[in-house]
Computed example of a mutant assay.
Amino acid sequence: MAEASVTLNRQRVERAFDSMVRENRALFGVVVPTVGAVMLLASFESVLPVLLPFDSSLILIGVVAMRLPLIAGLLPLIDRKAATALILLTVYAYGIEYVGITTGVPYGQFSYDVGLEPLLFGEVPLGLPIFFIPIVANCCLLLLLLLDGRFGRTLILSSIIAVIGMDLVLDPAAVALGFWSYSGGLYHGVPVSNYLGWTVSATIAVVIFNWGFEQSAVLNRLHQCEFMLDSLTAFIIFWGAVNAYFGYLLPVGITGLFALGLVTADRVILPFDPSL
């Protein structure tokens, strides 16, 4: 009886969460990333009032807001195995980042500079999992849709490539904004070693995610939940805008490919209901 009551309460929470996100798709997927990009670029140009530039609390709130569609989409799928996978991804994210910062392996020597405090053990951003896990999840979800439910090696390999593609967008812009820096690199200040490291991290993370979340159930949820990839839309808008500002054409082009993927998967946020 108690278990049934807990299940019922959970379903009520999930339905309410779904409804809230669905009614605010444009806010989480378009408005928040647009405002966030403008504020961070204003921080970079030193035109914001004192205390606001690169405020870590505002950055974290904005990132969480952009992640809400993904969280709401995955929530009904989280059972014991999926929860274990998320815990493993969290531990892995902290662990590999700590090793990377303290040893330079596998990404190359780098350090965090502004805007991502507080730092765990004085080295790793406490909010790292909310940055890292959605990158992996969004790539797996998008490819699951684009491959029309074809599971196995093709899904794993294409998801790994997509994760590396997202970092090709993320890292140059983050370095330009001053979030973190490397000792040097040919790709807008990012070394090749970073992407070799991301190949390893992407492989491990994609395998863990696909192990934890039963793929047919995820695909079914994707078909039922039209907003589940809105976090990817937010990523495209935010990092695409920042890269465009700095004139980084290749990262902008890669965001265009992700946008094309969303269009192909019919996951574009519309300002109106096309059925009306």
Score class of each variant (00 low, 15 high):
I96A: 07
Y98G: 11
G100L: 04
T102E: 14
T103E: 11
T103S: 15
T103K: 12
T103W: 11
T103N: 12
T103I: 06
G104D: 06
G104Q: 08
G104T: 10
P106D: 11
G108Y: 04
G108S: 05
D113T: 15
V114Q: 14
V114G: 09
G115K: 08
L116S: 13
E117P: 11
E117V: 02
E117I: 01
E117M: 13
E117Y: 13
P118N: 10
P118W: 09
L119P: 09
L119D: 08
L120K: 03
L120Y: 10
L120R: 04
F121Y: 14
G122T: 12
E123F: 14
E123A: 15
V124G: 08
P125I: 11
P125D: 03
L126H: 05
L126I: 15
P129S: 05
P129D: 04
P129V: 04
I130T: 10
I130N: 01
F132Q: 12
F132E: 10
F132H: 13
I133D: 00
I133L: 13
P134N: 01
I135Q: 14
I135G: 10
V136A: 02
N138Q: 10
C139K: 05
C139I: 06
C140K: 02
L144Y: 01
L144S: 12
L144N: 08
L147S: 05
D148H: 14
D148T: 00
R150A: 11
R150H: 10
G152F: 03
T154F: 07
T154R: 15
I156P: 01
I156R: 13
I156M: 09
I156N: 04
L157S: 11
L157M: 12
L157N: 09
S158I: 10
I160N: 03
I161C: 14
I161M: 11
I161D: 05
I161N: 02
A162D: 00
V163C: 13
V163Y: 03
D167V: 05
V169L: 10
L170W: 15
L170P: 00
D171L: 09
P172M: 07
P172K: 03
A173V: 02
A173M: 01
A174S: 13
V175Q: 03
V175T: 09
A176P: 07
L177D: 03
L177Y: 05
L177V: 12
L177R: 06
F179D: 01
F179E: 08
F179H: 13
F179Q: 07
F179Y: 12
W180A: 08
S181D: 07
Y182T: 05
G184S: 09
G184L: 04
G185F: 03
G185W: 02
Y187N: 03
G189T: 03
G189K: 02
V190Y: 02
P191S: 07
V192M: 13
